[in-house]
């Protein structure tokens, strides 16, 4: 695997760096060709369920259950999308977006403060504190659902979106702290020292120097925390009602009945849930990450 990757790497970096020693056209073309074949295979493997969902979303109920499966819809049938739009999926989408963004923002705000301390400050009991922070994630969310419900019910938060925001914000902390600490450690120490010599307070050094420099890492962590919230099922199932369902529960609710599953509606709902999100993440990534890293100091 490693040698294959490095060969592909060779093909492309040779092109960009134009190293004279290896500049053989045939090798270059073969490498390029191999690279694109590899990318095509990977894309097929990564995309096939979503491609299948897209195809199924245009099928009639009979087509979705034909034996053997019809691989392509006979016509561009839009009834599944109409069903999805007529259902409450819009509200579930909104709930998912609100819950995932608000919780991820809270998680990242708290975690970045703590990670700065873990990564760059010296204090007693550091290892113990780090283990305590991580320890919550050893405890399966599965076993937290019932005890946490009583707490949230006493606080009258059940059936509001806070019933999800509160646990998601906290459950994301161990993960976010661990990743952010690793990213913050990657930033050279002298920058910050220099800033403090120039008269910046520690906190200003943190949010003027460290945070901007770790934008790619920060963004990656934010996306990871966001998607974890976006996918969460157990809390979403147990702490919500019709008004506050998020997508993972809502998709089940709109596409199934006691005994039947409408695969067309399921696929349409999934496609609508996933495709815009990926496009959004890619656009944000291009904007935020490449925009900032190009100007940032490296190494």
């Amino acid at each position: 695997m490693a040698s294959e990757i490095s060969r592909q790497f060779a093909a492309v970096s040779d092109e960009t760096k134009a190293s004279p020693r290896r500049h053989l056209p045939t090798q270059f073309i073969a490498g390029r060709f191999g690279l694109y074949i590899l990318v095509a295979i990977i894309c097929l493997a990564q995309f096939f369920p979503i491609i299948w969902s897209l195809l199924t979303s245009f099928m009639t109920p009979q087509e979705t259950l034909s034996i053997p499966a019809a691989l392509f819809p006979s016509s561009l049938n839009l009834t599944n999308y109409a069903s999805v739009f007529n259902s409450d999926i819009g509200r579930y989408y909104l709930n998912s977006v609100i819950v995932s963004i608000v919780s991820a923002t809270i998680t990242m705000t708290l975690a970045s403060l703590a990670s700065y301390a873990f990564a760059r400050l010296k204090f007693r009991l550091k290892t113990l504190t780090l283990v305590f922070t991580l320890a919550l994630s050893f405890f399966p969310p599965l076993a937290q659902v019932l005890p946490l419900y009583s707490l949230l019910n006493k606080a009258h938060l059940i059936n509001t979106l806070w019933a999800l925001i509160v646990p998601y914000s906290v459950l994301g902390l161990p993960l976010a702290v661990l990743i952010l600490t690793a990213f913050f450690r990657d930033i050279p120490g002298d920058l910050e020292e220099a800033a403090m010599v120039d008269g910046l307070t520690r906190f200003k050094a943190f949010y003027r120097i460290i945070l901007p420099l770790s934008t790619p890492g920060f963004f990656t962590t934010f996306i990871i925390v966001f998607v974890a919230n976006w996918n969460e099922f157990l809390f979403a199932l147990n702490y919500t009602t019709a008004n506050t369902y998020t997508l993972p529960v809502g998709i089940v609710e709109v596409s199934q009945t006691e005994f039947t599953t409408n695969f067309g509606v399921l696929s349409a709902a999934t496609t609508l849930a996933v495709v815009p999100l990926v496009i959004l993440i890619l656009l944000l990534e291009r904007r935020i990450v490449s925009g900032l890293t190009s100007g940032a100091v490296k190494g």
């Binding site: 659902v145 419900y149 147990n238 609710e253 006691e258």
Partner: peptide
């Protein structure tokens, strides 16, 4: 409620 019986059971138990 989501129609899967075990999901419903879990939801009722929790509440």
């Amino acid at each position: 409620l989501p129609p899967v019986a075990t999901d419903q059971y879990s939801k009722y138990i929790t509440a």
